[in-house]
């Protein structure tokens, strides 16, 4: 009996070590390969290349603007969505989730068919001399489309979980709806919103498929970091690796921020 127990215990331990080890190795090895192929000197020298700097600046700028747009429009939308019952609410729920399952290339093509020069809207905008496709605006529109669910879903869930009696009490104490939102709703959901925000930024930063369809791959204009990697693959392999390493570092930074935020949240609750 005791040997049997010891045997099953060591078998369990073996399965645990093996399976966790496989998961960790499978996820870590590609990243290791990336760093292996470069050297600090190579990394630093191609870091100063204008192509790399252009892509970095463009990526950070467009992702930040996309994030701000999502927060400004998405926060009130998520709040009212979670606080109200209205016809078609479940359809809006599906729409919010749609970009998560829609292949980015499909999203990009769809955006092109809407805003492109021959598109449903685009043809009229074109009459007024406004062209969206293959501009920096198209880059951000693609990012907003694919990245919005990360913030919207989080915000929707947070507002939905918040006990309405907090807001009702605050109103009865004399606070206007806006004052209630600023002093009660936002502080009670802040950490969660922030982590949704960071995920949204990360998704926008990594956006490739929709961007290349609707915005193209024009260096200095619409070539974000993922597109620059794709472009550099044709010839300048080192540049591709350098940009990839940059993206890995930024992703690591983002994950670190999220874990700090969630830890703090754990302490408060």
């Amino acid at each position: 009996m005791a040997t049997h127990f010891r045997l099953s215990k060591s078998l369990g331990l073996a399965v645990a070590v093996l399976s966790i080890g496989m998961v960790a190795a499978y996820l870590a090895l590609p990243i290791v390969a990336l760093f292996f192929h470069s050297s600090p000197e190579l990394f630093l020298s191609s870091l100063s290349e204008p192509k790399v700097i252009d892509a970095l600046v463009l990526s950070l700028m467009t992702s930040t603007i996309a994030m701000v747009v999502i927060v400004l429009v998405g926060t009130p939308a998520a709040y009212f969505h979670s606080r109200m019952d209205y016809p078609g609410k479940s359809i809006v729920d599906i729409l919010i989730d749609l970009p998560l399952v829609l292949p980015p290339a499909v999203a990009g093509l769809a955006l092109l068919l809407l805003y492109g020069r021959m598109g449903l809207f685009g043809q009229y905008l074109h009459m007024f001399g406004i062209d969206i496709a293959f501009t920096i605006v198209a880059v951000m529109m693609a990012q907003v489309f694919v990245a919005s669910p990360f913030y919207l879903r989080q915000a929707k869930a947070l507002f939905g979980q918040l006990d309405p009696s907090y807001e009702q009490t605050a109103r009865s104490l004399g606070a206007s709806p806006l004052f209630v939102f600023a002093t009660i709703v936002l502080p009670l959901t802040f950490e969660g919103l922030l982590s949704g925000l960071v995920m949204t930024f990360a998704r926008a930063l990594g956006e490739f498929g929709a961007t290349i369809m609707v915005a193209g791959n024009l260096p200095g204009v619409t070539q974000t970091m993922p597109l620059a990697i794709y472009g550099a693959m044709q010839g300048d392999f080192n540049t591709a690796i350098t940009i990839s390493i940059l993206l890995v570092l930024i992703s690591f930074g983002i994950m670190a921020i999220i874990s700090i935020i969630t830890k703090r949240r754990g302490l408060i609750a």
Binding site: D163, S165, Q168, T169, R171, G174, A175, L188
Partner: peptide, 18 residues
Amino acid sequence: PEERQIGYVFQNAAVFPH
């Protein structure tokens, strides 16, 4: 509600935890 000046205590107290 904010202009009625009513003192309303909810069953669950609803004190603002933060």
